[in-house]
Nucleic acid binder design. Structure first.
Lengths: 221, 221, 221, 221
DNA sequence: GATGAATGAGTGTTCATTCAT
DNA sequence: AATGAATGAACACTCATTCAT
């Protein structure tokens, strides 16, 4: 956990640290990132850095958590009414929000990706796992609501659906980020609709129209 | 590029090198991986390693290429007949093949994931990009065929569809890998069908049934 | 020298500092000890510490001096009567006192040992040397008294005898400290008598009974 | 454990490393010693050092072991005949040998002292403990032989007697080392006799002449 | 053809200490 | 009087790579 001093620190300095760290971690992943490089780019002394953060992992966790929290804060509240339509409207709202956030903070999108990778890798940090878990739980609650109004299929493990949504979002996000310069604002909102559609396709309950494949994965659900 | 000497090397030694490298890279990513650790675990001399491979990047590329090639070799040939049904049958065949491969080489699945991440990161290596590009082109050709028989939507950029297929596969692959012990052989083929279904959902052309969302992202495609 | 402010400090705080320092120095020696760790464990601010003590060496010296002084304060007064018997009785009194002190302050025993080592090492601090010198002078005066009443041999350099007494005490002290849990109170007083006996053996003048060895080391005493 | 490469190393280089390490450890103790300083003074590269030794502890242990082994190699064999006189003659032989060794390698004497301290401190290394244990066991066997011929008292725990012998030797050794320049060769052999006498005093069985003090420490021996 | 000794810049982290407040 | 933020040199150790043999 970062020292409380961090929050007493000049916001500009703190921003400089977070930005330098986010960029380094996003570019090189956790293990590949150089603490020294971050320190140098943030323009702080070595000692100061260790005054704010316990170690490299702590810095990573703190920055990642911050990014996730920042995003989450902007997300719209859960839908007041309960219906499939309301559910999808809410999904759309979330996606718009996320895309907008990503457009304004491309580095943070990359950082989120790096975080996810890190989580998948063999050297996962406990604190990072926590951040990811929180993030997943949020989606899980969301999907559960979707299942109750019949918007989300119930024949697949939630954990898998969560992962799919996670990854669809990241993939489209990355695809967008790579073409950010050439996309108009109109393109972006179209991209939002497209992503929403894709998620809908993935989550929608199986019906006669689409065949009977992939009903359930585990024999004992 | 690895030295031609590599291919004259005792296959067991070569396998030891590849296996050690794959594991290290899969666990730590490219930058986080330790060349020394690989050398040590492979049980070869330091000089020998630099005798076979130019450097760390070369080893990485070589191993990754090998894994991709290995997999590709096993993939079924493109469907002889051309029809939507044949296309999906072929997709299913591919997926079964990939899942089988992943079950037998879990390390390689992790390595592929690591490769993908590496590609996404900011420090992409030219050679690795080449491997990934080749792999993507294969999918792209596939999807183009699918489009011709009306199995794959044509209203989204191919590059995005390729990415989505890529990532769906990896996600389900990882989801499976994490639960490999608890899944029966029957579960696995069910998972194959499920993944196929998901890909179908993602690729299928938009129709009246599913609304008009996400028609196209770029205004001038 | 510590600032006079130290003595105006809340005794509890001061005790906390001394205790933390004693433990750290005892465990790691002077050079190995971490000033930061001491500060942290004492629960005082960094500035405060440098407000009370000049530096690490000053803290060390102060604490060590305190421990020596504490012990010395409890030691019995020199024997009023002058005779060999009175001398040995006094020695015994001292030893009992020291053993009791050590039992109650095992950390301080370790600290004394660490001090001694430090003195032996190549980086001796002037102030510490002073403390040790004072302590040695005390023993020296004692031994000189013993010589006058014929209780202590006169054929060896006093400095050597002092060292031997010093070290016998520390060795038995350490031996006891290591087994403190298993020794009864009775064992302890037996240990006191034993140590006294050992010191007597070492100091007693050479006589015909014990041979002529070790008469004198330096040809010109 | 040091790498076997160490023993393939140019003896001069190895000696340089050992000497630099011995001096540094002797002067600063284990924790206080600077690996960097040793490397610098030994005139080897950083990498090379870690090529020979696992880490700082390994270097310490290796050097210490070497010193102990060196000394031990020179020690005279155990006495052929068994009698108190032979025992004491053997003790004398050992002491002469040790004093001679110390005169020629004053650094190593200091290192031995540092080792002992280190062992006493709270952060003992397993390997170092092993070296000390071996050394103690040697003395213990010796004393046991002495007890059998009635030369050594049996009323005190052997572990304590061992410690006392250990420490007497070190103390006299240090006392000599400090005055090495002013002592003639004759002084040295006189010192040897003196130390032998002191050890005799400490070990000799209690007899009527010396009173009944210190018979046994533990109530249940 | 193949080795493994050697390198020194790099790693993340801790150090004793200072000084503006 | 007292704080705690800040420093940068030093710490033990690892890195990818070279090269004489």
């Amino acid at each position: 956990m970062p020292s409380p001093r961090l929050f007493r620190l000049d916001p500009d300095k703190r921003a400089a640290i977070f930005s330098a760290a986010a960029e380094e971690f996003a570019t090189h992943g956790f293990e590949g990132a150089s603490y020294n490089r971050i320190i140098e780019r943030a323009g702080v002394s070595k000692g100061a850095m260790y005054y704010y953060f316990d170690d490299k992992a702590d810095l990573f966790t703190t920055v990642v958590t911050d990014v996730f929290d920042q995003l989450e804060k902007d997300l719209p509240p859960p839908p007041p009414e309960v219906s499939a339509a309301a559910f999808w409207r809410s999904v759309h709202g979330h996606i718009d929000c996320i895309i907008r956030y990503g457009r304004e903070n491309p580095t943070y999108v990359a950082l989120m990706r790096a975080t996810h990778e890190f989580e998948y890798s063999g050297v996962t940090d406990v604190a990072v796992k926590e951040v990811c878990k929180k993030s997943r739980e949020r989606i899980e609650r969301f999907l559960r609501d979707g299942q109750q109004v019949g918007a989300v299929r119930g024949d697949l493990p939630l954990s898998l659906l969560v992962e799919l949504v996670f990854v669809l979002d990241r993939t489209v996000g990355h695809w967008i980020a790579e073409r950010l310069d050439e996309l108009t604002s109109e393109d972006l909102s179209r991209a939002g609709r497209m992503l929403c559609d894709q998620i809908k396709r993935v989550l929608r309950p199986a019906d006669s129209h689409h065949g009977r494949d992939g009903r359930s994965v585990k024999s004992t659900p």
